[in-house]
Write a protein that binds this DNA or RNA. Structure first.
Lengths: 102, 102
DNA sequence: CGGAATCCAGATTGATACTG
DNA sequence: CAGTATCAATCTGGATTCCG
């Protein structure tokens, strides 16, 4: 999902640059994720036969449409992130109180 | 996600009934999922102190809002499921062809 | 009925080293 | 640069048993 978003925002990107923009991803996971997305037809992988190697990734129309479909979820997440964190804290507090009783 | 959808469609549900409607879930996973959703404030868990036990689950307003946010994704999935399956087949075919060359 | 507890095989992932 | 290969460690989920 982060890869999808990043590619949607920045368009065509090289492997390392994409990793930097996403933040905390091992290259192993990034590779796997991109291969899966490529297999699903969400991303286009373009290899340039030069030294040093250069590989660019960009969303296909299908990938972009998925990004748009997720738009509502991103908005929701932004709006309710804190609410959820609070709910978790409250839940843990309730749980501990109940546990202590028994 | 399936639990969210099912609860959104059917409203208040008992544990076993919810499991049946979702289809292929072990009670372990269903329990875990529901507890997580409860902790996140997405679902309300109501226990009736009767024999046999009766526990009902229903979405909170926060849970319903998430269900709505996911609406676009469900639609997308319905529309593109087959496209993705085809893409995977094509990708595997390409991969095998390439592998055979080397 | 609605779980909790235990056991366990298999999948996932991070870290590390190597390569064209 | 953009990976692949390998090993170890963790995590996951299924199956099973037990309980109030």
């Amino acid at each position: 999902m982060l890869a999808l978003e990043t590619l949607e925002e920045h368009g065509k990107l090289r492997f390392t640059r994409l990793g930097e923009l996403i933040g905390d991803v091992s290259q192993k996971m990034l590779t796997k994720t991109l291969r899966q997305m490529e297999a699903d037809g969400l991303v286009l992988r373009e290899v340039f036969p030069v030294v040093p190697p250069r590989v660019e990734y960009e969303l296909t129309p299908l990938g972009r449409s998925l990004g748009e479909a997720f738009c509502g979820v991103w908005t929701w997440a932004d709006e309710h992130r804190q609410t959820i964190l609070d709910a978790r804290t409250a839940f843990t507090a309730r749980k501990n109180a109940t546990d202590a009783m028994n």
